[in-house]
């Protein structure tokens, strides 16, 4: 038990003293995962809306596929992106491998299905009578869609939070395409992995606490928003 107490004490010290390495790692985690969430939102929201309100052959199959990809394994995304951006891959010329941008790309791909799927669910959750009312009031197509999205905003916001949660907590893709380079691509999850293998338990615990704290802040934010 002693090492846990020691680890907690060291973790507390690292956090309170705003240890520069720990802060840098936390900041990079936030930047990478927030950016990925922004990009994924910008794609998932219109795509989800389009899928929900257009009829086309194979729609059911597509939705089924999107839902299957909710559990897309992070290492598989990492592998795919790695193969794409390694220097001899089809996007190798971009020189993205082992950069934060590569991690953003991988996390965006990772959370796109779940955010698109949850957007579709959120829009489906809007009451039929509200939909009918909007239509009967003579809304244009654009007015209709914006109204529906506004009605579903809480559920959509929850979808965004789920996407962010998945992005910031994943380690498989980040380590494969980022390489866990100190001061460049080392984020909370990959740093915990490395520090634990080096038996730097205090640092690992400190980073773990920060990771949980971020999740707590995000979830509290969502709840507050939903309660308004």
């Amino acid at each position: 038990m002693g090492y846990i107490i020691d680890g907690l004490r060291e973790a507390f010290h690292l956090i309170v003293s705003l240890d520069p390495d720990v802060m840098e790692i936390t900041a990079l985690s936030l930047v990478v995962s927030l950016t990925a969430t922004c990009v994924a939102t910008a794609i998932a929201l219109p795509v989800g809306t389009a899928v929900k309100f257009t009829d086309f052959p194979g729609k059911k199959v597509l939705i089924n596929l999107i839902q299957t990809l909710y559990s897309l394994p992070t290492v598989i995304v990492g592998l795919l992106v790695f193969l794409l951006i390694t220097r001899h891959g089809s996007l190798g010329f971009t020189g993205l491998l082992f950069t934060p941008q590569a991690m953003i790309l991988a996390q965006t791909i990772l959370i796109l299905p779940i955010m698109t799927g949850l957007t579709i669910s959120a829009l489906s959750g809007v009451d039929e009578t509200i939909r009918d009312t909007i239509v009967s009031l003579g809304a244009t197509r654009l007015q209709f869609l914006t109204s529906i999205v506004r009605e579903a905003r809480f559920a959509i916001f929850a979808a965004v939070a789920v996407g962010f949660g998945r992005a910031i907590s994943e380690v498989g893709a980040a380590i494969l395409v980022g390489g866990n380079i100190a001061h460049r691509t080392r984020v909370l999850t990959t740093a915990i992995s490395l520090n634990t293998s080096q038996w730097e338990i205090g640092t690992s615990i400190a980073l773990g606490i920060l990771l949980l704290a971020i999740a707590l802040v995000v979830n509290t934010g969502v709840s507050l928003f939903q309660q308004r």
């Binding site: 990079l28 930047v31 950016t35 922004c38 794609i43």
Partner: peptide
């Protein structure tokens, strides 16, 4: 939005 997102945070990174 996406461009805005990446632009601002890329600068931070």
């Amino acid at each position: 939005i996406a461009a805005g997102c990446t632009g601002s945070s890329g600068g931070e990174a």
